[in-house]
Each structure stands twice: as structure tokens, then as C-alpha cells.
Simulated scan of single mutants.
Amino acid sequence: MKNKTKTIKFAFKMSLPVLFGYLFLGSAFGISLYEIGYNWIWAIVISLLVYAGSGQLLLVSMIASHASLASIAVMTFFVNSRHIFYGLSFIEKFRSYGWRYPSLIFSLTDETYGVNTSFNTTPKDVDEGDARFLIGIFDHMYWIVGSIIGNLAGQLIKIDFTGIDFSMTALFVVIFLDQILASKSKLPGFLGIICALVCLFIFGPDKFLLPSLIITVALLLGMKPLLDDKKEVM
């Protein structure tokens, strides 16, 4: 028998690392949005409907430069195209959760993906589908609250907020390291690092992300039988 209270507590506990990161990073977005003349209501609307992290920070700069809607759409697609690969690795599992499926896909940000991959099973009295669904909801709420706080802080506190956007990078690194330490096989993590470094050297810092993801996914798919065999042995 699944316990709803324990499921909520489990989801909240798993989402806590994202809470602190999203309050800071959401604040960075809220501050940036205020600086180009948009109040906290716009911060809520954009965070609720777009919810794209770095894509929202890009959106602010493109709005400020009076970019066309088509340009914004294309740039947002390229910046967030990595989420295609996140979705592919969870699509079958999420489909099995029924009505939660659309929300699970929409809420699959970098950090939420990291949390979802940090556990393969849940305690026996916790509903896994509800837990993953709630993790996505909690994370989205943290981002919206952070964007509101940042927008209001931009109005009330006149200080230099330079560097606050680095909190997303720091958060993702922590989740990634925690995932590697908890995983039985370290190969996928180290393979991803090597592919990223090689592509960074070849394509440069502005264009390395998408090719490194493509190569990593292709290699992992090719090595899937080997990885599955190692899991069975362990």
C-alpha cells in the first residue's frame, strides 16, 4: 500500500538540492527581467509557461535587443535542444505513469533530470510515479518563487548581482557528482566528461554542447549490451 504522506515527503527531500539553486538562479532571471522593465507579474507568467532556465535568461537579452519572435524561437530551441536527449531516456517510464506524463515531460529541466536519474527505485511505501511527478512540481514552484523574489529584490535592493547566474552551473555539477558517486557503473559519467572535453576543444565553448550530447548518447546506445551485462553481474 502506497502512502501519500511518505510520497510527498520523499519527493520534497529529493528536490531540496534544487530548491536552493533555483531560488538563486530564478532570482537572477527575475532581476534581469526587472532591469529591462518587466515587473513580477511577467516573471510569474514567463516562468510558468516557458520554464527554460538558461533559455529564460537568453529570452531577457533578446527582448532587450528587440529580437524578432522567430529569432527568439530558433535560439531557444538550440539552447534547450539538450532536453530532447533527457526526454528520450525517460519517455517509456514517464508514459507508464498515465496522466502525469505531460507534466513530467514539461518539467524535465537539467536539475530535475539529475534528481530523477539519482534513484532507480523508491521505498516500498512510496509511489514512484507520484514522487517523480511531485519532484517536477516542487522544482517548478521553486523556480517561480525565485523569479518573483529576484524581480522584487531588483526593485528594492540596489546592489551588484553579477555572477548570481553561476548558481545553476554549480548546482548541476553537484548533482552530477552525487549521481556518479551513487551509480554502480562510473562509465557513463566519465564517458560524458571525455566527450564534452573533446567537443569543447573541437567546436569551442559556444557550440560544443549539442555535438557532445549526440556523441555521448550514440556511444552509450552502442555500449548498452555491455553496460547491461555489468549490471547483471553486480
Rank of each mutant, 00 (worst) to 15 (best):
T5P: 00
K9D: 07
K9C: 09
A11C: 04
K13M: 11
L16C: 09
P17W: 08
L19G: 00
L23A: 04
G30F: 00
I31T: 03
L33N: 06
E35D: 15
W40L: 07
S47L: 02
A52E: 09
M62V: 00
I63C: 11
S65R: 02
S65E: 11
L69F: 09
A70H: 05
T76H: 13
T76M: 14
Y86T: 12
S89C: 10
I91N: 12
F94C: 08
R100T: 14
P102I: 06
S103T: 15
L104P: 12
I105S: 08
F106C: 10
L108D: 05
T112S: 09
Y113S: 05
V115G: 05
T117C: 13
F119Q: 07
F119H: 03
G129H: 03
G129D: 00
G136H: 11
I137S: 10
I137D: 08
I144G: 00
S147W: 07
S147K: 03
G150A: 05
L152Y: 12
L152F: 10
Q155M: 15
F161I: 04
F161E: 03
F161K: 01
I164D: 06
A170C: 14
L171Q: 13
V173D: 11
V174Q: 07
I175S: 05
F176N: 13
L177T: 11
L181F: 14
L181C: 13
A182I: 03
K186R: 11
P188W: 04
L197S: 01
L197Y: 13
L200A: 11
L200H: 06
I202E: 03
D206Y: 13
F208G: 04
F208L: 05
I215R: 01
A218N: 02
L219G: 00
L219S: 02
L220K: 00
L220V: 07
K224L: 12
P225I: 02
P225R: 01
P225W: 01
L226Y: 15
D228T: 13
D229W: 10
E232S: 15
V233T: 08
